[in-house]
Design a protein around this nucleic acid. Structure first.
Length: 221
DNA sequence: GCGACAG
DNA sequence: ATCTTGTCGC
């Protein structure tokens, strides 16, 4: 698939903040999703050689049957450190390399990390979604920012995630008795719809099938 | 100034 | 993210 780069990736944090604050205005948090949704993709990152090499993996599954259709892997030198709030600048370049190798254009991408549940409302799911112009959902395994009530133990239970008086996402239990996931809009997906897709992509385990497959490709030998 | 802090 | 075996619990 083709990609529409919006800026370079060699930046200072001050420049990164300026980009986040500029691009966040283009984020759409209502549903602008192709119908029917036939393919969902998961993207994840791994590192090699003491972190000097980034390895991105993409897995495209059919929806709602969740059968693996296509995968791609891309490696490139790691060029940005991990700094909370700036994850996309570290991971998106390699993810774009991997997406360029994919033949099936996914209808929705589930990202490992936050969407608008971010200090400047521009997490990795927003950044990736805007660049590739595909609906994205932020699916994070831990909290970056925000507060929420305790989530009931049963699968499907959720609580709103709020920050400074605004709703920024939801904390969702995808499996009874496991830690909840932090869900937020990336681009072109509403929160309600995001929760719906995440539940449909987690028939058995805590993490979506998409991310589980991408994770194995990105992290296993 | 003191904590918090996606992967 | 990554380094890593056995172990607790459904």
């Amino acid at each position: 698939m083709k990609i529409n780069q919006r800026h370079t990736w060699t930046l200072t944090t001050a420049e990164a903040i300026a980009i986040q604050e500029k691009l966040r205005g283009e984020i759409i948090t209502t549903d602008k999703i192709p119908t029917p949704v036939q393919y969902v993709a998961g993207v994840d990152m791994g590192f090699e050689a003491d972190g000097t090499i980034s390895r991105a993996a993409v897995a495209v599954l059919s929806f709602p049957s969740l059968q693996l259709q296509e995968t791609a892997i891309a490696r490139r030198p790691t060029s940005f450190p991990y700094i909370p709030g700036f994850l996309s600048f570290r991971e998106v370049p390699a993810v774009l390399d991997a997406l360029e190798k994919i033949n099936i254009t996914p209808d929705i991408i589930l990202c490992d990390g936050q969407g608008i549940a971010h200090p400047r409302r521009f997490g990795i799911a927003c950044h990736l979604g805007l660049i590739v112009n595909i609906p994205t959902i932020g699916v994070a395994k831990s909290l970056l920012i925000g507060k929420h009530q305790e989530v009931p133990e049963a699968r499907g239970s959720w609580q709103l995630l709020t920050d400074k008086g605004e709703t920024i996402g939801a904390v969702l239990r995808t499996r009874t008795g496991t830690k909840p996931l932090y869900i937020s809009s990336g681009h072109r997906v509403s929160l309600t719809t995001a929760i719906d897709y995440v539940l449909q992509c987690t028939p058995k385990y805590r993490l979506p099938e998409t991310t589980r497959i991408a994770d194995k490709l990105a992290s296993s030998k």
